[in-house]
């Protein structure tokens, strides 16, 4: 299984922002928390309704920002969802959505862990 947070990737992105890594993290998590819950909601809803277009787009977006912040496990699940939506496979959609939700919560907790950096 992919690591929850790839520290090297996260630090690379924070470094790209410049300034103190802790401050950069706080700023970027603010932005992340604005969008991610909505995308997650769209994924859960899309999975329940088998709305593949919505699923694909939401999963893709959440994947991009998560991967950029080094949240590889979440990103990997998003990618799985994106591919499945692309192939229009209804099989196991809600189970995958649940896994994704759990991974999101774990990721968010890890981001908020003061020991992260």
């Amino acid at each position: 299984m992919e690591p929850l947070i790839d520290r090297a990737q996260l630090l690379e992105s924070l470094e790209a922002m410049g300034g103190e890594p802790a401050e950069a993290l706080a700023l970027i998590l603010d932005l992340y928390s604005e969008d991610a819950p909505q995308l997650l909601g769209a994924i859960v809803q899309g999975a329940a309704a088998a709305d593949f277009e919505q699923l694909r787009f939401a999963a893709h977006s959440l994947k991009s920002s998560s991967a950029t912040l080094g949240a590889h496990r979440l990103a990997q699940l998003c990618q799985q969802m994106e591919h499945q939506a692309h192939r229009r496979e209804a099989h196991n959609l809600s189970a995958l959505a649940q896994q994704l939700q759990a991974a999101y919560q774990a990721t968010w907790a890890a981001f908020r862990d003061p020991a992260l950096l």
């Binding site: 700023l27 932005l31 992340y32 912040l69």
Partner: peptide, 14 residues
């Protein structure tokens, strides 16, 4: 994506 937008913007300015 606001995260990537912000990252790109800060990085480019730097």
């Amino acid at each position: 994506d606001p995260v990537i937008r912000k990252l790109l913007e800060s990085w480019l300015r730097q």
